[in-house]
Design a binder for these strands. Structure first.
Length: 585
DNA sequence: ATCGTAGGCGCC
DNA sequence: AAAGGGCGCCTACGAT
């Protein structure tokens, strides 16, 4: 099927800050010479308005430049992001994407530098050509050589174009090529959004952050000795509950187990949820749990974190539009796991507010949509999905919720597993879809999300291959153990595949929502500053808050229209206008 | 010294 | 109510 009549044509672009733009379309290659990055980006924006193409670029090196100046582009094709969609996993270099679309093994990708003694010398051909005789991209080019001359810029752009065309062709192998291609477009725009979030940063109230850190971790240490002393004071609060002068390290779980043993508690591990139940009955455990909270802030979100990741009142980290598992966004620098107690420090600038929104019950709703289970879809038509499920199963809402979540996560024991039988009889289509994914995973077969993302499975390494791997375990490796291990690996792959169908589909929906918001809030000078799996935080001028909030809410319906395989499923967003992140419900 | 793994916890 | 899926980041520790 040819969609080129209705969709904009590809134009590939590479940007060299010193020189200008290298461009390639199906008809021609050309350059736009400029004397600065700003001029290059201005020229690009002008071309975008004139040609209205779908921009093709290799990946990060381009999106980073665009994001720094916030160039307002929307339609794009990010070869590295599309590669992750097609191929799965984290690896996403240009050389890798190139190799895969050309059917070359990624293991044969040439590296820069000396030839190893055992390497078979290959014909490297003409260094002026970006593609080697063996078909791989020349490493000297991928590592920056592409920008050394104007001619090379256009060559490099035409290769990006070729890679994109080949990626497009590869979608024809998927069950729904048109849908996968639309995922490729939204994933590409999400990558651009990620680059913008990395450049913009999350506004932080630094004085408040310092107060909070001091409360948990004590004053900023002035020396290593001082740091030790402060730590000792923190530890002493817990250790003082132990009558004897036991020498133990609270940061060593084995020591903690010993400590609890002495106090009369025999526990398999020291996980917080397990200790939580004993909190009331033991001042020691209570003190220890409080210690762990403080220790978390002191070590992960303390002064070092502030110094390393917060500058000019902005918390900045790397953003990736799709992690290696199911395609959720990831972020570093604590952007995705800031403790709730620290959320008050996320504060809008003066004259600005946050428009915050989260999707309600998104995972079961996408399960309804991607499975096409009529009974489940009908449960997903109202504001609450779990109550209708509970009514059908004749159980409480709490049990129904537990069962649905358990079905998506692959729970095997407890209450949720008990209720699973009810789900299977009442929602056979949805449960069957999950079951099939789990079976494929157990076999080691890749599975695909609704939008066409490959979920790559792994298999247990053959145990006689590398006998010495792993920590000093029994070299004999009893075969019963091995079988048990293989079964446990298979079960683990089953849960992984099962969950990836849901987590991945929810991530696809979320990204369509986010990029829709990104595009529509631009005229109001508002920006997305945080994406958290089902939650969006928009930094908006205060006087535009109402309009931005309306856009964010409406964009859910647009995302549903664009993405959802079933239009009857209802998607909900809770939207609020706040000054600090902690004001969210 | 440096590396990989395990246990743990933060968020969803 | 039970403890299942994902990620990043911390410390401790054993192997190299």
């Amino acid at each position: 099927m040819n969609t080129s009549a209705t969709s904009p044509g590809f134009v590939a672009v590479v940007i060299d800050p010193a020189f200008g733009l290298g461009l390639a379309s199906d008809e021609r290659c050309w350059t736009v010479e400029t004397d600065s990055t700003a001029a290059s980006l201005a020229a690009l924006a002008k071309l975008d308005a004139e040609l209205r193409p779908r921009w093709v670029w290799w990946g990060r090196e381009t999106t980073q430049l665009l994001a720094e100046e916030l160039v307002p582009l929307d339609r794009c094709w990010d070869v590295q992001a599309v590669h992750r969609l097609l191929y799965g996993g984290w690896r996403a270099s240009s050389a890798e994407a190139w190799a895969v679309v050309h059917g070359l093994s990624v293991d044969s990708i040439p590296q820069m530098g000396q030839l190893g003694l055992l390497d078979i010398p290959v014909d490297e051909g003409d260094p002026e050509q970006p593609v080697r005789p063996d078909g791989h991209l020349r490493p000297e080019w991928t590592s920056g050589g592409w920008r050394s001359t104007p001619h090379r810029l256009t060559q490099w752009a035409s290769l990006a174009l070729e890679a994109a065309r080949l990626q497009q062709e590869q979608f024809s192998d998927l069950p729904d090529p048109a849908r996968a291609e639309s995922t490729a477009r939204s994933e590409s725009a999400a990558e651009l959004l990620c680059a913008e979030m990395a450049a913009t940063g999350l506004p932080l109230d630094v004085p408040e952050a310092l107060r909070l850190i001091e409360g948990a971790a004590g004053p900023r240490p002035t020396s290593y000795a001082d740091e030790d002393a402060i730590r000792a004071v923190r530890d002493q609060v817990v250790l003082s509950h132990l009558g004897a002068q036991l020498s133990l390290n609270l940061r060593n779980p084995a020591d903690v187990k010993t400590m609890l043993n002495h106090a009369g508690f025999d526990l398999p591990d020291t996980k917080a949820w397990r200790l939580e139940e004993l909190r009331e009955s033991s001042p020691l455990i209570n003190a220890f749990l409080r210690w762990r909270k403080a220790e978390r802030i002191a070590t992960t979100y303390g002064y070092r974190w502030l110094d390393e990741h917060v500058h000019d009142g902005r918390l900045r980290g790397d953003w990736s539009s799709s992690d290696g598992a199911a395609g959720r966004m990831t972020a570093s620098a604590g952007l995705h796991n800031l403790p709730t107690v620290m959320r008050p420090i996320v504060r809008a600038d003066d004259g600005f507010v946050f428009v915050r929104a989260d999707l309600g019950q998104i995972e079961p709703r996408v399960l309804a949509a991607v499975s096409g289970d009529d009974a489940f879809i009908s449960a997903a038509q109202g504001d609450d999905l779990y109550q209708p499920v509970a009514d059908r199963l004749r159980v409480s809402r709490a049990i129904a919720k537990l069962a649905v979540l358990g079905a998506m996560y692959g729970a095997t024991t407890g209450e949720s597993a008990n209720a699973l039988a009810g789900l299977k009889t009442n929602f056979p289509v949805a449960m069957g879809m999950l079951e099939r994914a789990a079976e494929a995973g157990k076999r080691g077969d890749d599975v695909f999300t609704s939008g066409g993302r490959r979920i790559r499975m792994w298999s247990a390494p053959p145990s006689d291959e590398n006998p010495g791997s792993g920590p000093a375990t029994d070299p004999a490796g009893g075969s019963a153990d091995r079988i048990e291990q293989a079964q446990s690996d298979a079960a683990s792959r089953g849960r992984y595949a099962r969950n990836a169908m849901i987590q991945g589909a929810a991530a696809e929906f979320f990204k369509v929502w986010a990029i829709t918001v990104r595009r529509q809030i631009r005229p109001f000078n508002a920006r997305i500053v945080l994406c958290l799996h089902d939650e969006l935080l928009v930094h908006s001028p205060a006087d535009a808050a109402e309009e931005v909030a309306e856009i964010v809410g409406n964009a859910v319906n647009e995302a549903a229209h664009y993405w959802s395989p079933d239009k009857r499923v209802r998607y909900l967003a809770d939207v609020s206008v706040i000054h600090r992140w902690s004001e969210a419900k």
